[in-house]
Design a protein around this nucleic acid. Sequence first.
DNA 1: CACAGAATGTAACGAAAGGTAACACCGGGT
DNA 2: ACCCGGTGTTACCTTTCGTTACATTCTGTG
Lengths: 189, 189
Amino acid sequence: MLAADRYQRIVELIDENGSVLVSDLVAEFGVSRMTINRDLDHLAGIGSLTRVHGGAMSAVETGDPRSRHCLMCGTETGGRTAMTLFHEGGTQSQACCPHCGLMLVSEHADVTAALAQDFIGGQMVSIRAATFLVAPDVTVCCVPTVLCFEERDDADRFSRGFGGTLMTWEEAQADVRDHMTLTKEGTEV
Amino acid sequence: MLAADRYQRIVELIDENGSVLVSDLVAEFGVSRMTINRDLDHLAGIGSLTRVHGGAMSAVETGDPRSRHCLMCGTETGGRTAMTLFHEGGTQSQACCPHCGLMLVSEHADVTAALAQDFIGGQMVSIRAATFLVAPDVTVCCVPTVLCFEERDDADRFSRGFGGTLMTWEEAQADVRDHMTLTKEGTEV
DNA sequence: CACAGAATGTAACGAAAGGTAACACCGGGT
DNA sequence: ACCCGGTGTTACCTTTCGTTACATTCTGTG
């Protein structure tokens, strides 16, 4: 039997029953526990299922491909300010807003890319192409507020009414390092 | 036995069982492993089957698309820009638009093929045969916008009004690596 | 709550199987 | 005689998988 056949069967079983047990799969396929674990990790990696202790569950039932909670502060994501971070190896994580997103990228060296939601239109924007409005006079999610705009012009107009500083992602990150994190050493330049 | 006879029989076997093993085919036809591999590569080349490690599987997808959410950014798929990625083993995943599709293919080494929707007509196009318009001056889904066109001419005409750069899939991927992902270079060794 | 034991997850290693490039051989056609 | 496509052989590399050992999580008992 091909590994690919196992993959298909596992997804079928989850469709039928909602979940599968590692021990059942070991019996069904006659392969080792390790192999089943590897299969499930692979399928979880491409979002076909959600890995749980002892087996796997339907990805849709568990609230969709990924956990829908901010990796930084734990609040539910999915609002107007959500961010998705892409880690090395294909795993993803969610941030509730660019404020948390900034902190996460600073902490996790393996973040390869990230998308943030345009605050006006809601479309997802690659952070390298976006403009961020840091510390405007509104509270949407976490404080200090950081908002994402696809168009620098939109951010500019918004700031006329609400203040804040326009920054690129890199600038905003430098700002996070300087102002939002606690300096433990004091040896910084 | 002619090579053509083997081809026919291999396709038959896949129709019957969903997949075939190289080792089984070696036994059935009494030819070398190398010859079977060449057969499978040939049949995969003309789209008769999907090559997987140790054998081959049906190219036509049985199950309907799994999660209806973009594996990259989590938004609902199914719009005019949807993409379907095929992973080794026959499992599929969805991307909301070529922007996310590009990033996913960069991250997932096991993507064997992908289809994107032509932005004009809506038909699904194999990404290798399509032309992509990168960063035109419109926002349809994620930003920077990447649109897919079956005909390079369509992409060219569209770009006259909306700008953007025409690219093959490979070129677009290189562009993603350069402009959409975070560079974590620093001074580390 | 602590604890022990069972079940499960994970990392590392080696064996086996599979993929592939290079070359030689064969037979049919020109 | 020559070319050319199909095939087998060989050698080498990659992938897959089981085993082992150990870490982690779960579960029942007191």
